[in-house]
Design a protein around this nucleic acid. Structure first.
Lengths: 148, 148
DNA sequence: GGTAAGCCTGTACCTGGGTACCGGTCGCAA
DNA sequence: TTGCGACCGGTACCCAGGTACAGGCTTACC
């Protein structure tokens, strides 16, 4: 007995849906497990760890494709070369920082709109003193308390 | 002549695709314009402003559905009551701040992983000192320089 | 051996914000 | 009047990351 974990057990242990496991298998994130004589999947307990790894990487902002590549790099590394996790994590860090910067700009604009008492977007669009930048949200940042 | 702008002119002036205008019309964000005898759309120049308003609101993090509601509230407000823009902008501000908080947590973890020299996710998952929280990314924050 | 829960494959659907393609019509100028 | 570009409606497709359903098989337990 217990020649492996059933898909439902793995899914529950990792806190994901059964369909998600099959989906990850199709995407190549999970290796194809053993099968019972009747065709049911039989997982080793490591599969739960792999699922947790995937979920952790996702939470860090990696896409499934990126996670797949990282896992594959880890598996294929019989020899010397590094997996590239360092570089990819650094790149992701830069992405995250850029996103934080964008959101901070957005927060500034939203706060200014609330402060200015903006109440109707179409009216604001014709009010020159409105802090909402209708022509783009890139560089400029002039904002002050207005009677929008 | 010039009994209105053609869809291509409006699209170009607002910097969006023609299909996008028709899509917004279907979604109820743009009012249905006049038509030429042959059925071609003829827009007033205000349509360009509305498009810019939509794009500005999108950049602030509002979904198309939310933008549609805000525009509708503005149009329907013949009488007194406010559009709710104030409340919705405040709520959106809170959302944006929460998202910034999440990203800052992620940034912290990523930076720790880079600093610790993590090189293989599956190895990390079995290394107790690894800073990547494989069990969730919510509250705890223990991280120190490790030889991952 | 019966039966219920669990699993199988394959396919379709979901969200959100568009984009692309198709065959057919309109508008306008030469 | 003919030619060509712009436009029409309708439908299908794209991205990511799953989720749901249908119809049939396996496994486990009594």
């Amino acid at each position: 007995m217990s020649a492996g974990l059933r898909i439902g057990q793995v899914a529950q242990a990792a806190g994901v849906n059964i369909q998600t496991l099959r989906y990850y298998e199709r995407r190549g994130l999970l290796p194809e497990p053993q099968r019972s004589p009747g065709g049911h999947r039989l997982y080793e307990s490591e599969a739960v760890t792999v699922l947790r790894v995937i979920k952790a990487a996702q939470r860090l902002g990696f896409t499934l494709e990126e996670v797949g590549n990282l896992l594959k790099a880890g598996r294929d590394r019989h020899g010397r070369p590094a997996t590239g996790l360092q570089e990819r994590a650094s790149a992701k860090l830069a992405e995250v920082e850029a996103k934080i910067g964008d959101l901070i700009t957005i927060r500034t604009v939203l706060a200014a709109a609330v402060q200015a008492g903006c109440d109707d977007l179409t009216v604001c669009a014709e009010t020159p003193c409105c802090p909402i930048p209708f022509a783009g949200l890139a560089a400029e940042d002039r904002h002050g308390p207005s009677s929008c």
